[in-house]
Simulated scan of single mutants.
Amino acid sequence: MRFEIREDDLSGPEIQALLREHLAGMQADTPPESVHALPLEALRQPGITLWSAWRGDRLCGCGALKTLAPLHGELKSMRTHGAFLRQGVGQAVLDHILAQARARGLLRLSLETGTAPSFAAAHALYRRNGFLPCEPFADYRPDPHSLFMSRLL
């Protein structure tokens, strides 16, 4: 199934609700000191672009790219709306972000995700797309509740 991927200015009620759901989900599955999901205001900072995936007028999911260094980016805020799980939303958003990262000249894309069983689908998606476990990057520190992954572009 096809999705329309749009750069999102974060002003719409649908994306704001999905990002609140994302943050709440991270907080429900992870101790507070290990939650690295960004709140809405932080996603508006320079160096972060968020895209949303749509089917018609229905928001299906989102994902963001944060520039860490001239050649290194971080995948942030990947979330699929519950009504669209297992329909390829995550793959579509990830494909778009990978293409955008390459177009921006990035050579590496990294991510941090949780280790709880609820993150298993995310781990599988990232592994299928060439992400491998790595050491903490940027300002992250070792954390038993975090899985760090990275891939070359």
Rank of each mutant, 00 (worst) to 15 (best):
F119M: 15
L125M: 06
L10C: 09
R108D: 07
E4R: 13
D8P: 04
R151K: 14
G12V: 02
V93S: 00
D9H: 09
D9K: 04
W51I: 08
L23Q: 10
A138M: 09
T67Y: 06
T49Y: 02
E112A: 15
L106S: 09
F3T: 00
A92G: 05
T115H: 08
E4V: 13
R86G: 01
I48D: 09
A37F: 09
H123R: 12
G105R: 09
G63M: 00
Q16H: 05
D29R: 13
L50K: 00
G25P: 11
A120S: 14
L59Y: 11
A101R: 03
D143H: 05
E33V: 05
W51Q: 03
T30N: 15
K66Y: 03
T49N: 08
R141A: 15
L75Q: 02
R127W: 01
T67V: 15
L23S: 02
Q91M: 03
V93W: 00
G56K: 10
H145K: 06
L153K: 02
A28P: 04
R58Y: 03
L152D: 14
R2W: 06
D139F: 08
S150V: 09
Q27C: 07
G47P: 13
S34M: 08
T80S: 12
A122S: 14
W54V: 05
L109C: 03
H123D: 07
L98K: 06
L23G: 01
S118K: 11
T67W: 09
G88M: 06
H72Q: 14
A116Q: 14
L107A: 12
G130C: 12
H145V: 02
W54K: 04
A64N: 05
R104N: 09
A121T: 12
Q27L: 08
G61M: 05
L94I: 00
N129Y: 02
A103W: 07
F131Y: 07
R58L: 15
A83N: 10
L43S: 04
H96D: 06
K76D: 06
S118R: 13
K76T: 02
L106Q: 11
A103D: 15
F119S: 09
R151Y: 02
P13C: 02
V35R: 05
H123V: 10
G12M: 05
P31R: 13
S52Y: 10
A92V: 00
G12E: 14
R79Q: 07
R128D: 14
D95V: 00
Q16S: 03
H145E: 08
A101I: 13
L40P: 12
A64Y: 04
P46C: 06
S34I: 04
